[in-house]
């Protein structure tokens, strides 16, 4: 005889899953070390930006300390953060409150 498993999720898990829903921003933070030309290269390589877009984003990082480089689902946003880490850039995720 088998017993039917409960499909009720623990409250903590529900809260976590809800928190991870929605749209997330990938934000690259400035560092004083990486060359401007290197950051432009990384943006072109990782996000497929053209030269002008990559330069604009790089200058935002340099002058404002941060730039939003992508927004979308959490899972893909995390994958972008991981890839940026592979290039030794510092990135964080923020919920996109406009969605």
């Amino acid at each position: 005889m088998t017993t039917r498993a409960s499909h009720t999720l623990p409250k903590e898990q529900v809260r976590t899953e809800l928190a991870l829903e929605g749209v997330w921003r990938v934000v690259v933070l400035n560092d004083p070390v990486n060359l401007m030309s290197y950051v432009v290269l990384v943006f072109k390589k990782v996000f497929g930006f053209d030269e002008q877009t990559a330069r604009t984003k790089m200058l935002e990082v340099h002058e404002q300390g941060r730039s939003i480089v992508w927004s979308g689902l959490r899972e893909k946003a995390e994958a972008y953060v991981f890839t940026l880490q592979q290039w030794h850039l510092t990135a964080i995720l923020e919920p996109d409150e406009t969605h």
Binding site: A19, L29, F82, Q85, Q86, H88, L89, T90, I92, L93
Partner: peptide, 27 residues
């Protein structure tokens, strides 16, 4: 040691450990 430490605050600890291992291997 990662040259650029992971700045994400809310990663699952096991997931984060797996990231660090993979990033260190690449580095």
């Amino acid at each position: 040691n990662l040259a650029a430490p992971i700045a994400l605050q809310d990663l699952d600890p096991d997931f984060k450990a797996a990231w660090v291992d993979e990033l260190l291997l690449a580095q």
